[in-house]
């Protein structure tokens, strides 16, 4: 019955705020909505370096890393988190991003490995269904 137990395990999601901006309204609303949708949510709090986020992802055995940036520093911070995740052997953990991301930045971010980008106006239920469709519990 082992496979069934894996299926039943709640997805563990790290909601993280890399960089220096203090705009955490979106991250907190998302964290709350994901928790209400039955996921296990770990919220890092503000002002995290990419190293701190990857270390939290490792310690917490998360299935998804969800990043939020509203300062415009996403072009550096998102790829840097992904690079460090790979370096720590967590290359299979999907990364999604949210915040103020201009359309023209999206192709580069996707290329860097950001699996989905949720911009202003996204409803939390759309994020939740994306996760249900695309994220599976990692085999630890």
């Amino acid at each position: 019955m082992a496979p069934l137990q894996i299926m039943e395990r709640k997805l563990r999601i790290l909601v993280a705020k890399p960089g220096l901006d203090g705009h955490d309204r979106g991250a907190k609303v998302i964290a709350r909505a994901l928790r209400d949708a039955g996921f296990e949510v770990i919220y890092t709090g503000l002002h995290q370096t990419p190293e701190m986020i990857v270390s939290a992802a490792l310690q917490e055995d998360v299935d998804l890393v969800s990043l939020s940036v509203l300062s415009g520093a996403h072009n550096y911070l998102f790829p840097e988190v992904i690079r460090l995740l790979k370096e720590k052997g967590l290359g299979d953990v999907p990364v999604v991003g949210g915040g103020i991301i201009p359309d023209e930045d999206m192709p580069e971010l996707k290329k860097a490995g950001v699996q989905a980008i949720f911009t202003p106006g996204t409803e939390t239920k759309d994020v939740i269904s994306w996760i249900h469709e695309n994220v599976k519990p990692r085999k630890l």
Binding site: G19, L20, T49, G72, Y76, E80
Partner: peptide, 22 residues
């Protein structure tokens, strides 16, 4: 910009990607 708001110089690694942006 955010590094100044947080008391961080532009050359600090924590300022990467943020300098003059916001």
């Amino acid at each position: 910009h955010f590094p100044t708001l947080m008391g961080i110089d532009s050359e600090d690694p924590r300022a990467r990607g943020e300098v003059g942006v916001c």
